[in-house]
Design a protein around this nucleic acid. Structure first.
Lengths: 167, 167
DNA sequence: GTGACCGGTTTTATAATGCAAGCGGTCTGG
DNA sequence: CCAGACCGCTTGCATTATAAAACCGGTCAC
């Protein structure tokens, strides 16, 4: 492989792969929002990504092995995007970024509750969540005993939303 | 404070502050390379940052509270850049990014040894290093008992460089 | 068959990045 | 006292990335 990076530093290379304003947002929505189709990612986007940017980022992430794309058997025009081991392994980075943002930036309550739970749960919870993502995205066998971390995070989020919507 | 972020999500806000190709590189060089002056950051840059980009990033990081700037008493034109608690708290993110890059990207041995030590040392080592950075950058009182993490990382790096330079 | 939906592309405008040269002041060595 | 290196930037210009909006041909449910 040709060395196409500015340097051999792992921080730098990670930044060259993920260091822009949208790549991690796309992965976050697939990961925590379970959005698997182009339109889902486009229309439910909290930050309002443009369709050409989304198309470009999906292409780049496919190229670099952070996503895979498959045809949806239920609809000839639909594509399903899935995480790979490489992107599932970003969970610790997401967790630490979430914790840092929660501490130093003016985040909103409903969008920070999941980050807070991830921080409190620590590495054991991250491992559970990663295993769950492998089931969802890589067809890994499922352990029926384990309660779903995804559902736990989702429930906590919806609970805050409901509470804030109430008079 | 006016809400100038695309959304209230902590991941998104962290990305809006640090999600470009240079901001974290600058902080990394101050943090792990102990480069405190403009020229040091410019000329020793592994990735070859341009002077206008460096000037712009330093300004942005000052604005956002990730760096402070002070006059160097030894030279009227020199400025000393220092980390803040906000940027020192990025250590876990750096550690996780380093670990991820080490695992999935074609990093070089000499530039990944520090990331490897940080990963192996885990959170206790991160805490020690953060305390050390507070001494260096925030004038926190020093514990003379503790061996220096900074020196340990630096020594490991230089050892790999020396070994690779030998015939 | 029609209207909503599918994953995108095209067009055009603006902003970020990158490179090279330069700037006025300061400090060092002789 | 003066030449030359050094100081933190700035400027000008070319290239590249991002963004908003409109649009596209095919597909699906009713």
């Amino acid at each position: 492989m040709v060395d196409e990076y500015r340097s051999g530093c792992p921080i730098n290379q990670t930044l060259e792969v993920l260091g822009d304003r949208w790549s991690l947002i796309v992965i976050r929505d697939i990961m925590f929002g379970n959005r698997r189709h182009f339109r889902e990612l486009l229309q439910n986007s909290e930050e309002g990504i443009a369709s050409n940017i989304l198309a470009d980022r999906l292409k780049r992430l496919l190229d670099r092995g952070l996503l895979t794309r498959a045809d949806d058997p239920s609809h000839k025009q639909k594509a399903i995007y899935s995480l790979t081991e490489m992107s599932i392994s970003l969970i610790p980075i997401f967790a630490e970024m979430g914790a840092w943002g929660n501490r130093f930036l003016p985040v909103s309550e409903e969008l920070s509750i999941r980050a807070q739970l991830l921080e409190e749960g620590g590495r054991p919870l991250w491992q559970d969540f990663m295993q769950e993502l492998r089931v969802l995205h890589l067809d890994a066998p499922r352990d029926p005993q384990k309660p779903s971390v995804f559902e736990k995070l989702q429930a906590a989020y919806l609970e805050v939303v409901a509470r804030k919507a109430a008079p």
